[in-house]
């Protein structure tokens, strides 16, 4: 039983980065495909499409920071806390990156034929980013209360 509990602690430490990175890959993939498609339709302004498609990268950065904050000697006392906090943060980052990728793809699709909506069309993706930031910040706050 003891090794299992300790393994869960390690799982919790690495989950924010692993799941956040998986989400970023999927999200950037969605945005990148949309950007590549839009490039076939427009004559200029390719850079902004690529920039928007890279937005879901931030979840990996949040994951790195949360992982480093959670990183400590794993004991039976702190393992459950590390697992719950790390795993839930990871899932939240994964889902937010995927959703943000879809929002970025929609933004690219809308702005390719109507350049004037470019700014406002990114707003939903920015709101999704806000939720990821909430998870990130409060994961850091709660990590301080897990025993070392």
């Amino acid at each position: 039983m003891e090794p299992l509990v300790l393994s869960m602690g390690w799982l919790g430490i690495f989950s924010p980065l692993a799941l956040g990175a998986i989400g970023s890959m999927i999200g950037v993939g969605r945005g990148g495909l949309a950007a590549a498609g839009a490039m076939l339709e427009v004559e200029a302004g390719y850079g902004r499409f690529v920039g928007v498609s890279a937005m879901p990268s931030s979840q990996t950065i949040y994951g790195i920071v949360v992982m480093l904050t959670l990183n400590r000697p794993v004991t039976l006392a702190n393992s459950p806390g590390l697992f719950v906090l790390g795993a839930l943060t990871g899932v939240a980052l994964l889902v937010s990156a995927m959703a943000q990728g879809s929002a970025c793809a929609a933004s690219i699709n809308a702005s390719k034929s109507k350049a004037e909506v470019f700014g406002i069309s990114i707003a939903p993706a920015a709101v999704i980013e806000g939720f990821a930031v909430f998870v990130f910040v409060f994961a850091l706050v709660l990590a301080a209360s897990i025993p070392t």
Binding site: G31, G37, A38, N109
Partner: peptide, 13 residues
């Protein structure tokens, strides 16, 4: 299946 590239390559109709 999702067609991000294909849909984005189509103009507004």
């Amino acid at each position: 299946r999702r067609y991000y590239q294909l849909v984005s390559s189509l103009p507004a109709i």
